[in-house]
Amino acid sequence: MIEFKDVHFQYGSLLVLDGVSFHVNRGSTKVIMGPSGTGKSTLLKLMLGLLKPDAGQVIVDGVDVGQAKRSEMNDVRRKIGMVFQDGALFDSLTVGENVGYSFLERGGMPIDEVEAKVREFLAQVGLDPGILDQLPDQLSIGMQRRVAIARALAACNPEIMLYDEPTTGLDPVTLETITDIIVELQEKMHMTSVVVTHQIPDALKVGSSFLILAGGKVVFDGSAEALAKCTIPMVMSFLEPFKKTLRASFTSLHSELGN
């Protein structure tokens, strides 16, 4: 569904991606991890066509995003829902207008129908539709993230969901809620998902395969099982603080499979 072939990208003179290749199968969830500044968010922006690769190919649902015309790119974007870092909600619009943005933008839908849709999407992410008229600034960070997920879902009934650090800066309870929403959406809607995160426990909960970036290169790409056994020094040092969680999660996965 998504494929990167030897992608190179740099911001000015700073090399961010240096020959990155990987693929994400339809219906699976790829978790991208790695230290800050290694180009994780850049990967998502490349998938969405917000950036063009300097070399290599980014193919999303058969379309080479780097070469696509504006109309082709709009077709690709219609299949993608993106939850940006920190939500990126439009702060001059209310929650209702944010979630219903794509309906209002396309036009042709009566306003009460848009409102009903917005209520439906807010309920889907566990939010009270009573917040419809509030501004994003009036919500907690956790609620803003949920509104951002609802907005991405409302945008296009997406086949692909991209999450850019959806749980960063959240308290443990809200973090758990957001992770549960991501898992639930995947199970219900069988979407292809890419999740960029620093939170290893969440990564293990939502991911079916894992990719670790360092120095602009892919240093690991594989399953949770392969990750637990990985002996690459960079990967080991990155995972060291979470080794216990990783082992426990792997053991529980094994016992679930055994049962």
Binding site: R77, R78, M82, F84, D86, A88, F90
Partner: peptide, 14 residues
Amino acid sequence: MKSANQIDALIAFG
């Protein structure tokens, strides 16, 4: 808006 990724969000929504 640019710093908060809202411009990217607009493009993402077409």
